[in-house]
Design a protein around this nucleic acid. Structure first.
Lengths: 206, 206
DNA sequence: GTGATATTTGGACAATGACCTAATTAACGG
DNA sequence: CCGTTAATTAGGTCATTGTCCAAATATCAC
């Protein structure tokens, strides 16, 4: 069970690069092969279909997020937003997937299935961490408010890159990222304790 | 300058229907023509390219939203959320566009240009109406908070259908719509005055 | 009716993802 | 070194897609 040949790695790398630049749908297998100085048939030796290639990328992103989104014992607001920040960076690295999110879920059943499986545990982890924020006296929120925070974060995290690609093209990725993490900070603000408010306002000024 | 022939109308109607059901990308011109008992070439007589057809649909949606999103003299929270509700319904009617939003903006320069033109005035209208809510003592929010509310509404309004299609497939459209307008209500809640809070809580219980 | 215009037809075109086979080369264990 | 397996090349076909076009037909004003 050899996991990754060098060639396979090169293919995945180049695919991610080109997909990110031009969009998954607009990069053909022939084009990708040419950029790798390979024949098309050789691509299909490693990835029989384009969907298999996309599936691999989505697997890689899921893995990175698995390492990023973890339950923390004693969360601080800073740690929480650092985590969010890192999730956002992962999304940037795999932006092609985020931009074609809906399409992929509709067309690629394997990815869709894995996603819906993962998603519920992801939300639980967010929920756990937000509850830890409450226990740490950074915020005060009842169960339904925690739920609201989780689902709002989920929505923004999923689609901020899409909106930025449409509405904030002129901004740098860093500016976009700042804009949306501040948006989430503002959503937290009303729930923050005095202690939490100080930390959040630091984030909002940065 | 005859604006709409009966045939053209039928094409647009059927296209919207089929696009909504299966997704724009998965409905071929031949398929569409067959459903209309026409030849493909005849479609292209009215709409030379598929993008022209999408452009027309997007124009129709923009028109409906122009009628929906208007500055109101004395806005109440109920009127505000009724407006939001109607916008959401427009989005449902043209859900195919919302689901392929990013794609269309990337590929169809005509739609993209019109969109970015319209969007700034849309945001101004939202801003105006939210400021009217402030003047009506429903909420209290400074300029930067109003801005935050506008951009959050914009994000949710654009992408709620996409998220629902992925994560809440089992729910009815009405349930989905309720969920996301409640999400926006909860974002307003911290800014609400006592008067506003009463109205919002009514919305949240419904 | 006739001529001009609007509409419809049927087929062609290039590009795409997928698939296939045969032949060649590389890598590696015995 | 030999033989086996893995990797790569080369070439092709296939169905499907959006787009395009020339010819045929229908419509309607005069």
């Amino acid at each position: 069970m050899e996991s990754k040949s060098p060639t396979e790695k090169k293919i995945v790398e180049m695919a991610l690069k080109m997909f990110n630049e031009s969009g998954i749908e607009y990069v053909g297998m022939r084009e990708l092969a040419a950029a790798l100085k390979m024949r098309v048939g050789n691509l299909t030796y490693y990835f029989p279909t384009k969907d298999d290639l996309v599936n691999r990328l989505s697997l890689d992103l899921a893995e990175e997020n698995n390492r990023t989104i973890v339950p923390v014992e004693h969360v601080t607001l800073k740690a929480f937003f650092d985590m969010l920040h890192q999730v956002f960076r992962n999304h940037v690295r795999y932006r092609c997937l985020m931009l074609s999110f809906v399409h992929i879920m509709e067309r690629n059943p394997i990815v869709a299935k894995r996603y819906s499986k993962i998603q519920s545990t992801r939300n639980e982890t967010w929920s756990t961490n937000i509850q830890a924020l409450r226990k740490g006296k950074y915020i005060s929120a009842d169960a339904s408010e925690v739920n609201f925070l989780v689902s709002t974060i989920a929505l923004i995290a999923r689609f901020w890159i899409s909106e930025a690609a449409i509405s904030f093209k002129q901004q740098t990725e860093e500016q976009q990222l700042q804009h949306y993490s501040k948006m989430i900070a503002r959503i937290f603000l009303p729930f923050a304790t005095a202690k939490g408010k100080r930390e959040l306002e630091e984030l909002l000024e940065a």
